[in-house]
Amino acid sequence: MDRLDDIDRRIVLATQAGLPLTPHPYHAVAEQIGTTPDEVMHRMQRMHKEGIIRRIGAVPNHYAIGYRANAMAVWDVDDACVDELGMLIGSLPFVSHCYRRMRRPPLWPYSLFVMVHGTNRAEVEEKVAHIGALIGAAARAHAVLYSKRILKKAGLRLNGGNE
């Protein structure tokens, strides 16, 4: 975990729901948290460089923009090759998330999680088959879990305590 100081945390809290839609958004953030625009911009540039800020921009609702088939494809991959395959699969242009997680056998033997999106299921199946071919014999079991409904989407938020 990275050490963020109080001003960094205030910047996170002030921007995690979104940037102000005003001509000088970082100035507005600075005013809100009681510091200077340069301080806000320098710190955000630093956090971006360090990867604490993954990116700055628009987050589309993938259902609303036509990606109606959204699958969590999972494989039980040999531990000896999962990292190498995970990096490779994560670099595919149609993969939005790629993780390794704990297995919970027998109900959940899968370790590699890949989120694949398409306008329809045939498209997703083609992409999943492509990933399956890359994993090849390193996979012992495989499943595809299509999302049926978003029940809640609040986003990951830093808890601001009493702020």
Binding site: G51, R54, R157
Partner: peptide, 15 residues
């Protein structure tokens, strides 16, 4: 159409 506009944090690294 957009769920958010702004920075996306790697929240695990913040705490």
């Amino acid at each position: 159409v957009l769920t958010r506009f702004g920075p996306l944090f790697q929240i695990e690294r913040i705490g």
